[in-house]
Design a protein around this nucleic acid. Structure first.
Length: 288
DNA sequence: CACTTGACCTGTCCGC
DNA sequence: TGCGGACAGGTCAAGT
């Protein structure tokens, strides 16, 4: 699912909803892999602790507790983190919420707070997870050691962007964009959208891109991701924010899931192919 | 080390 | 309507 803009949208939502809340219970529902910690550790380091803040690195959410432990959460393809503050845990506002009463059949983890509110981790495909670990150990996990820089940071420069691709010179630009060790947070949607913005064919080898093309791609990726955050992310099927509501970036997509439509720039038909192991959408006329 | 492929799961859609 | 196969927004491990 969720790429950087979606995870950031969830983070912002949770950051207004859960800091200061006291955790009284947490359990998985018939899905131990979704929350693999030992019950005794959960009891000792989670129950009775208070949420300090909610952070994000790449597509990973970090909920820091005052016990010195953090909840590290990856939504993978179909994960959802939905907060319900009402006592009924029903749909709330049926018109703008994509999901109904919780827990539902995809609910894997439930975290309860002392005021009766709850945080639900839903995940149809069970690829995602919630893990409790010491906050100081988070930077040491393999993924954090290998993951590339945050593309939206103010001090992330076009030069840095170009240099990060150096070791992937012989692969294609689509696969390189999806490689989390090059740049953090890019997934299939924003890889396709940013390549369209930079007029670059997804087949192009990284080593063949000129400096000017890297600059265009840098600008394109940042503007696409910033717009997506502004629109609350992309909801195709599963993704919802912390309140269970959909994001609207798909209304602004130029190529993603738009095969058969006309390219907004040149009018040629947008096509979808299988490339870099993923569905890939682009305009074969103006992306060179 | 760089690169590709399959595996992890459940659900849906498409063609026969 | 039923059934098999491909595919779905992400990482990993294991292969070359």
């Amino acid at each position: 699912m969720p790429e950087l803009p979606e995870v950031e949208t969830v983070r912002r939502g949770l950051a207004t909803l859960i800091p200061g809340k006291l955790i009284t219970a947490a359990r998985h529902i018939e899905s131990p892999k979704s929350f693999p910690n030992a019950e005794s550790d959960v009891r000792e380091f989670m129950f009775g602790s208070t949420i300090l803040h909610v952070k994000r690195r790449a597509k990973v959410l970090l909920i820091e507790l005052d016990s010195g432990y953090s909840l590290v959460i990856h939504l993978k393809m179909t994960g959802q983190l939905v907060f319900r503050g009402d006592q009924v845990f029903g749909a709330g506002h049926p018109n703008d919420s994509l999901i109904g009463e919780l827990p539902d059949r995809s609910t894997r983890v439930v975290i309860e707070f002392s005021d009766g509110s709850k945080l639900f981790f839903n995940d149809q495909r069970k690829f995602g997870w919630v893990k409790l670990m010491p906050t100081l150990e988070v930077p040491n996990i393999d993924f954090m050691q290998k993951v590339g820089p945050e593309p939206l940071e103010a001090d992330f420069s076009p030069e840095q962007f170009r240099e990060r691709f150096a070791r992937r010179a012989k692969t294609n630009i689509k696969a390189a964009l999806l490689d989390q060790t090059v740049i953090a947070g890019v997934g299939n949607i924003y890889a396709d959208e940013s390549l369209w913005g930079a007029k670059i064919d997804p087949h192009r080898l990284v080593g063949s891109l000129r400096r000017g093309e890297f600059n265009l791609l840098y600008e394109s990726l940042r503007s696409v991701m910033n717009l997506a955050i502004e629109k609350g992310g992309s909801t195709d099927k599963n993704y919802v924010n912390a309140e269970g509501k959909r994001g609207s970036y798909m209304d602004f997509a130029n190529v993603f899931r738009r095969e058969g439509h006309k390219c907004p720039r040149c009018g040629h038909e947008i096509i979808k192919i299988r490339w870099a192991g993923r569905g890939t959408h682009y305009c074969p006329n103006c992306q060179k």
